[in-house]
Design a protein around this nucleic acid. Structure first.
Lengths: 212, 212
DNA sequence: TAAACTTTGTGTTGAATTGCACAAAATCGG
DNA sequence: CCGATTTTGTGCAATTCAACACAAAGTTTA
């Protein structure tokens, strides 16, 4: 079942399915079809069925998919039945916004620590909400030790481009296995570490091409 | 030259090339090869040459590409020789971070107005930097009028999921042609409007799949 | 100048991805 | 209970995308 390697492009669609299913579930819907799900996510019904069939048979002919079951299976496949601890490095505007934003919890992630190298920021508190200031900005010098000790496997990199590769190297050394990179450059990391990119300017430029 | 439709997947790579070229240029490098550029962006040299050849012949055999010229051509192709005005809707943590962040300027974009529907926020100032508070949070009720009057064609949508589709409809009505959507759902818009998605949780879930 | 390199642009081949179509299985209506 | 309907999972065909390979054009070296 999982012996043959699943193409990356299929894996990349699974979180999209999961998100739509969770939304439907929150709205009280308990079952759906590949047709209906496809309309919600903008992917053909056949594509969805093929993707899911890579991991087993989750649906029933004539009925479709039972949403709670499919959510459970997709969560397990993506390993988000557990909640992953995440570290944030670089506490500029973006880093602050991410730490304060508490919306990842129900998607399988929670921020547990944050770092900066600016002496003017180290030791400052970041308030997650008005009553609760849980986060102390740590010194990036302690990053390798702190992350390794707390066994954090994911990080969001929000430093300027100039510091990004150096921080990435430290994250790798600390045992991090996935980096969500907000710095505008490609990071060089070992193949065992996954990197995903978020660069708003790139997305904007992908749209302006199409505007007369 | 541009008579045959350029595949989306090629368009999506152009901003990545441009970003790397601008970085090289900033570092004082004036020429490069498809080989070298490919190593920087993680794409094969042949792929880069094929992509660029869709738009003309920009390189020279034996020498490679003259960076200032290639930057100019790519900027023109992506229509970012001009600076695009962008509106931000939804002034939560993320919206604030985006408005305060002034790093889009040299990529072809600048935030010019922002909106929220919360009466407690409307009229508040958002400081872009310590000395200069340029942005007043406008009422989303005025969105269609204000955006149309100022001829803004791009927007970043940072509202909660529950408000996103309604806001998107208004943006379309106001004449916006590209929406960078941070809300965790797919927006339904006419084909003439482009949407790009940014959902950090989805990127994180694409990585956890690969972590034992 | 001439030979050895370098590098582009592109025709061709091969691989990956998507779309189509349908048998099989389940439900529904009367 | 049975025919009509819905919907899955999947083999096959079509299309899209990426890799390969090389002639042509330019540069460098001696």
């Amino acid at each position: 079942m999982n012996t043959v390697k699943v193409p990356d492009i299929i894996v990349s669609r699974l979180p999209v399915y999961l998100r739509a299913l969770q939304r439907m579930s929150d709205a009280g819907v308990v079952s759906t079809s590949s047709q209906e799900l496809g309309e919600k996510v903008g992917i053909s019904a056949a594509q969805i069925r093929k993707d899911l069939s890579q991991f087993g048979e989750f649906g029933k002919q004539g009925t479709g998919y039972y949403i709670p079951f499919l959510i459970e299976r997709l969560s397990k496949i993506l390993k988000v039945e557990q909640v992953w601890d995440v570290a944030v490095v670089g506490m500029g505007e973006l880093g602050h916004a991410i730490v304060r934003y508490q919306g990842f919890g129900n998607r399988g992630f929670r921020v547990v620590m944050c770092f900066d190298s600016d002496p003017g920021k180290i030791g400052n508190l970041v308030c997650a909400n008005q009553s609760d200031c849980t986060f102390v900005i740590r010194d990036t010098k302690d990053l390798v030790r702190d992350i390794r000790e707390s066994n954090v496997k994911l990080a969001m990199l929000c430093t300027p481009a100039s510091a990004a590769q150096e921080v990435a190297d430290q994250l790798v050394e600390a045992g991090v296995r996935g980096i969500l990179n907000y710095a505008p450059l490609r990071l060089i990391v070992p193949a065992s570490v996954k990197v995903q990119h978020i660069d708003p300017a790139i997305y904007l430029q992908r749209m302006t091409f199409y505007i007369d």
